[in-house]
Design a protein around this nucleic acid. Sequence first.
DNA 1: CCATCTTTGTGCACGCGTTCACAAAGGCAT
DNA 2: ATGCCTTTGTGAACGCGTGCACAAAGATGG
Lengths: 285, 285
Amino acid sequence: MATGRTHRPASRSRGIPEATVARLPLYLRALTALSERSVPTVSSEELAAAAGVNSAKLRKDFSYLGSYGTRGVGYDVEYLVYQISRELGLTQDWPVVIVGIGNLGHALANYGGFASRGFRVAALIDADPSATGKITAGLPVRHTDELETIIRENQVSIGVIATPAGAAQEVCERLVAAGVTSILNFAPTVLSVPDGVDVRKVDLSIELQILAFHEQRKSGEEALAAAAEAADADGPGTRGKPEKSQKATPLAAPAKAAKAAVKAAVARKTGRSGPDGEVPAVMPA
Amino acid sequence: MATGRTHRPASRSRGIPEATVARLPLYLRALTALSERSVPTVSSEELAAAAGVNSAKLRKDFSYLGSYGTRGVGYDVEYLVYQISRELGLTQDWPVVIVGIGNLGHALANYGGFASRGFRVAALIDADPSATGKITAGLPVRHTDELETIIRENQVSIGVIATPAGAAQEVCERLVAAGVTSILNFAPTVLSVPDGVDVRKVDLSIELQILAFHEQRKSGEEALAAAAEAADADGPGTRGKPEKSQKATPLAAPAKAAKAAVKAAVARKTGRSGPDGEVPAVMPA
DNA sequence: CCATCTTTGTGCACGCGTTCACAAAGGCAT
DNA sequence: ATGCCTTTGTGAACGCGTGCACAAAGATGG
């Protein structure tokens, strides 16, 4: 799962919890696989295993959709595929545009999973004039100038942003102004949008950082803690949360000094981390 | 945030909530941007706005890390960058391997955001012999046979899987067997891993489906509901949840018939949805 | 040194999501 | 038909995450 989410204010639409909606595609994929193997029915236990979730959770999720399923037997695969598809809105065709045909945009344009789920790439759009006209994934790359026209003519309501971060907000605004109300953002920026517009964000860099966090935990923190100890005056074990007991003791001054010391040390080796804020996750710098 | 997550059992590591960990990279990015503009300090309000979150949430998140920040002033940007980096484990270098150099793998290999965050691509690996040796993003593509050697020699503990779904589980097992304990999975499959191994999943298709769900809600469900009404015997308004009052009335038979009818209708138009289970999210079919 | 003003850090309450555990429901065999 | 066995659907309890609101802390100006 791509990660961070910047979607709607956590309100549930028509009784279906957001968390459940996020899992429906998972179930749908597992069911599709079963369908291809011509499996007629499946129990909550089996399907849950295939989708990688708890069976109780799965049953509760389905209960929000209605009472599909037969006690003592399980769920009819084809029937469930249809119901979930309908609930997700995949029974209709969704034209989408991809803006920013760099390395990632190129990969997205070639992604085969679109069509099979009711998504259709209406157009590829890029700001670079030299890229315009190039056939990519069977479609000519159009110039940004045509953005509004393309959106309106194709009734596009879903846009994918794969531009550098610097261009993302502007592209976003133009998309919204032209009528797009759902945006999938690959640029490493926080997009601000008016109410009524959904934004979901995918950021590889964030996923990797979360993995690194857990990895650090697993590989024993000792070595690193020891190394950091020299610079960090807080001491290694105390860091969890400042002791409640350090009331108003004259600890303020030393703590301040420690911060300053670390700051200085940090300043010395700053310059390593280049600006990565300008390229979307999964694009060459 | 992209989505579905299949990570650890929701237990918090050493007191830092998982939700907080997931936001730290967000703060870090915002802080890095401020740092580049040489902004010395920032208030929780400003930083929260830049990161796209609530200021109370941000302060609470930081409180798990310790008492950095000065009341009446705000947070020292450089100092906070260092603290968060350290907490996330980004002060050390993480060698990663990318397995599956298709369209997506190629894009990932060229991603510039790796190095700036302490990640280093140790090797690119692909199963296709004809791809082996090709220089991609400055690195030669190695054959899958060398996987174990590469992992061990480079002490790789983080692996990225960008292969077709069919190969993902096997690759995963080989990675784990060779010593990898964190996996970022782009293949549309549920990976089963032993305890102690973290898996995070990024799936574009799922993100789009979630957007489609909300989009369907926004664009009024009426038309679609009316269309489905013909086939769905439940009736349009009743679907929220089966009425409690339909106790043991002879409604079972009609309901069953309705399901069968829909099933037949579904069967008729099945064949549209191609198998998408074989390619990772963001790869050409 | 004191008053004032800003901003942090957090106690508390609320709501969503998860999980357990079980009664109800249906199939199937006798 | 009747009883047994399997599996669903859900009521209820619990725990995590979020947001409010405020007291404590510190800076700043007089």
